[in-house]
């Protein structure tokens, strides 16, 4: 059984910034001194459809590139919830947007439902930053990596666009608060 420290699966709908969020998470893990690999699965269509990205984080070399059974799962759409929410390891964590029903998730997982999409829309003013908000909540709930490294990774990704950076950092910090409160 593969026993990498963090086997993270992030999933949602094409256009939600799932892969972008996954790249930032992997960069943040490297900033913290871990090894990390990030890959994704997507279909031939360019928009819509479900998107899945996987990130493996460990102290040692990472050989096999796919998550065998995730211990951290993010679900941002009903379709992702149906396809990718079921094989979480016992004791693993599932974070889902509270717009999604949660009856069918494994009973032995820690399940957190937070209104991430709504908070991005109403409190940050842009639904498109629900992905960075979700990163904040994920990190606060899991302690996978440091908040500092995550902020560095977000800053690096949007360095050329100060306004976009600002809204993403606000979303991330709100996500951290929401995660802390739910813990």
């Amino acid at each position: 059984m593969t026993a990498y420290k963090w086997q993270v699966r992030m999933s949602g709908t094409g256009g939600q910034g799932i892969i972008s969020g996954a790249i930032m998470l992997a960069q943040a893990a490297l900033n913290d001194g871990f090894n990390a690999v990030q890959s994704q699965v997507y279909g031939p269509e360019s928009r819509g459809g479900s998107t899945k990205s996987e990130i493996i984080i460990d102290d040692e070399d990472i050989f096999y590139l796919k998550v065998v059974c995730p211990n951290v799962v993010l679900l941002m759409s009903p379709e992702a919830y149906k396809k990718y929410g079921q094989d979480v390891l016992p004791g693993g964590m599932v974070l889902l947007d509270s717009s999604i029903a949660k009856e069918a998730l494994p009973a032995d997982a820690l399940i957190y439902a937070l209104p991430m999409i709504e908070a991005a829309r109403t409190q940050v003013g842009n639904e498109l930053v629900a992905n960075t908000l979700a990163l904040g909540a994920l990190i606060a709930l899991s302690d996978m990596i440091s908040i500092k490294s995550m902020e560095e990774a977000i800053t690096e990704r949007f360095a050329a666009k100060p306004k976009v950076l600002d809204v993403n950092l606000r979303a991330f910090r709100l996500g951290v608060e929401m995660g802390m409160a739910a813990k």
Partner: peptide, 9 residues
């Protein structure tokens, strides 16, 4: 494809 689209250190 797995290596082409892989991101790592």
């Amino acid at each position: 494809e797995k290596i082409g689209h892989l991101r790592e250190r």
